[in-house]
């Protein structure tokens, strides 16, 4: 492993708000002016590089990962040495001006490759949790923090949730929804090379990104999705996909020694995720892969489905952990690694 390099592992924050004033809807947080959004991102230390919206939500590609803004929900995911949790205070502040109050918070991340490079409050999970405990308003009184282990000490899943009431979400009464967060390391070096730009290619980050989306087959994961993509110079790639009210997102740090790629999407438990998972594995061929699924209800099917899709592609399930969180539902964390290796 390199002594120092770019931290691919993202921190992810999801905040839900509620408001009593029906006049605020259906726009809500999408009414945030761009200056306010810039201030939030400044606190985190990243910027917008590209963006697109549809009738359900706005998706931003950031200099370090992605931001999704729904009328009453924000998902912000940042990599590197960004200070993601510093976005909470300004977000609560600006949402308050729109008549919205925080009702739910979920913070997740994997294990950093370079933990010592992280600034406060990301210096340790303990620091992150105490920062969250101090920052989140007291009405979010149902709280839980947990480190979900794997067999390898270098791969754990860190989860913090807080909610004002249980259950928090009645929007999809009959439909079980999940969020799937995949973290991949030790990418196949030949495949990873596709995320490098040629020196002085004369292309914009937008058009070089579009090319990578096509060359790598990322556009085949969900052919229905509208993709907003960006290629960084000299290497690295980010994309957001929009399919109705569902997002997907991919971020790639292709450098050898600390190569990393992430895939995240939302979906319905009744959908077959086999195709998506197979495509993702084929695009990156990771040596190690963790898949965490967060589901707003209780379901057994998800993990077996995930393993069934991934295992025929040369990956073996090495560990599986499960935990329940108030209002966030059940989280299943599974790790896989290539059969050729032993972990």
């Amino acid at each position: 492993m390199a002594v120092s390099g770019f931290e691919g592992f993202e921190k992810r924050l999801e905040l839900h708000f509620f408001g009593d004033d029906p006049a605020m809807f259906p726009l809500g947080l999408r009414k945030l002016d761009f200056e306010s959004l810039e201030q939030v991102l400044e606190a985190v230390q990243c910027t917008v590089v590209s963006a697109v919206g549809n009738s359900y939500f706005d998706a931003y590609v950031l200099s370090e990962s992605s931001l999704f803004v729904y009328p009453t929900k924000i998902i912000i995911k940042t990599c590197g040495t960004t200070q993601l949790l510093k976005s909470i205070i300004p977000l609560i502040h600006y949402a308050h001006h729109l008549g919205l109050t925080l009702s739910f918070c979920r913070y997740t991340r994997g294990s950093f490759i370079f933990p010592k490079a992280q600034p406060f409050p990301h210096t340790s999970f303990k620091d992150e949790v105490s920062y969250l405990q101090d920052t989140i308003p007291p009405n979010l009184c149902f709280r839980k923090a947990s480190i979900m282990p794997s067999k390898s000490s270098s791969h754990s899943w860190h989860v913090f949730t807080a909610t004002s009431h249980v259950p928090y979400d009645h929007h999809h009464d009959n439909e079980l929804l999940f969020t799937m967060e995949i973290c991949m390391t030790e990418l196949d070096p030949i495949l990873a090379r596709k995320f490098f730009r040629r020196a002085e290619d004369g292309k914009s980050g937008d058009s070089a990104g579009k090319e990578m989306t096509e060359v790598t087959g990322i556009n085949e994961i969900n052919p229905e999705a509208l993709i907003c993509d960006f290629a960084f110079d000299p290497c690295g790639y980010s994309m957001n996909g929009m399919d109705g009210d569902w997002y997907s997102t991919i971020h790639v740090t292709p450098e050898d020694g600390f190569s990393y790629a992430s895939f995240e999407c939302v979906g319905s438990v009744s959908d077959n995720m086999g195709h998506v998972l197979r495509k993702v594995v084929q695009i990156f061929r990771p040596g190690t892969m963790s898949i965490s699924t967060t589901c707003n209800g209780y379901t057994n099917d998800m993990w077996t489905q995930v393993a069934t899709a991934v295992e025929p592609l040369g990956l073996k399930c090495r560990s599986r952990a499960m935990d329940q969180f108030p209002a966030a539902g059940s989280v299943v964390f599974q790790t896989f690694s290539a059969r050729r290796k032993s972990v």
Binding site: S50, A51, V52, G53, N54, S204, D206, S207, L226, C228
Partner: peptide, 25 residues
């Protein structure tokens, strides 16, 4: 279907389109 969409028209016909806030493109 997505916003912003920039439509490029010449002679009444579409010659290009940029979907998304992509300043360089």
């Amino acid at each position: 279907e997505a916003m912003p969409t920039f439509l490029f028209l010449k002679g009444g016909r579409e010659v290009d389109r940029v979907v998304g806030a992509k300043k360089e493109d």
